[in-house]
């Protein structure tokens, strides 16, 4: 536990020190939400049917911007090797990256939900919607962290990550968009979509934990 805590603390501190990737993601998502708010006619129409798409496309691309950055820095500096031959298990290395990426992305997402609440005049900071965002983000970050590891030594990896991850994320996106819509009262009950989201999050996390040691050695 002490080792896991050390790895997580290290990843968070490095994410803060080298925050250009996350700042780009925050800037991108702010511009996206602002642009959407100008594009929709807020005075005459109900914008709620559009919000699930607005929210999740913004989150998705914000994450793709920055998810691979921390792993890439470790590969470039050789510190990933230093972790792999140390007594730190591969699972702890993965957990450190996962938690740091998760916290950074959740901060961006929360700030965008506040911004969207103000701009679209729709209550988005409900416990139900925050739960959907949390579960969806766990599944999303697990998968993108694993894929960033697998593509760490490949040329053109910045292109490879979105190309590899987006098709795999389709079930998560469907579940997240539909659950968000249901939480905004656009359809009845979030239950089935929440279940899909949770199954995806558990599957993605388990797959990532199991495959990470192999991906790391490659």
């Amino acid at each position: 536990m002490n080792v896991l805590g050390a790895v997580v603390a290290k990843d968070l501190k490095l994410a803060w020190r080298n925050r250009s990737g996350w700042l780009s993601a925050a800037a991108f998502s702010t511009i996206a939400v602002l642009t959407y708010s100008f594009a929709f006619d807020l005075a005459t129409g109900d914008v709620r049917p559009l919000l699930p798409g607005v929210i999740w496309t913004t989150f998705l691309f914000a994450g793709v911007f920055a998810a691979g950055q921390s792993f890439q820095d470790e590969v470039d500096d050789g510190t990933f090797d230093a972790l792999m031959f140390s007594p730190v298990g591969a699972t702890s290395v993965f957990a450190g990256k996962l938690v740091a990426n998760l916290i950074a992305l959740l901060i961006i997402e929360f700030s965008q939900l506040i911004l969207a609440t103000i701009l679209f005049d729709v209550a988005l900071l409900t416990p139900e919607l925050l739960g959907i965002v949390l579960i969806g983000t766990i599944g999303y970050v697990s998968l993108t962290t694993l894929l960033a590891t697998m593509g760490g030594h490949v040329r053109g990896r910045s292109v490879l990550l979105p190309v590899l991850s987006l098709p795999l994320l389709i079930p998560l996106l469907i579940g997240a968009v539909r659950a968000t819509g249901a939480s905004l009262g656009l359809e009845a009950g979030t239950g089935p979509w929440m279940l899909l989201l949770m199954v995806f999050a558990v599957w993605a996390t388990l797959a990532a934990v199991l495959l990470f040691p192999t991906a790391a050695e490659q």
Binding site: N2, V3, A6, V7, K10, K13, L14, R17, N18, D77, G78, T79, D81, A82, L83, F85, S86, P87, V88
Partner: peptide, 25 residues
Amino acid sequence: VLGHSPMLYEDFTPLENLQFFARIY
């Protein structure tokens, strides 16, 4: 292990680097 690459966190100070590796070992 001492390799071609120093395997150090460039955004950490020397003190922070050694504190981190001391902790994980």
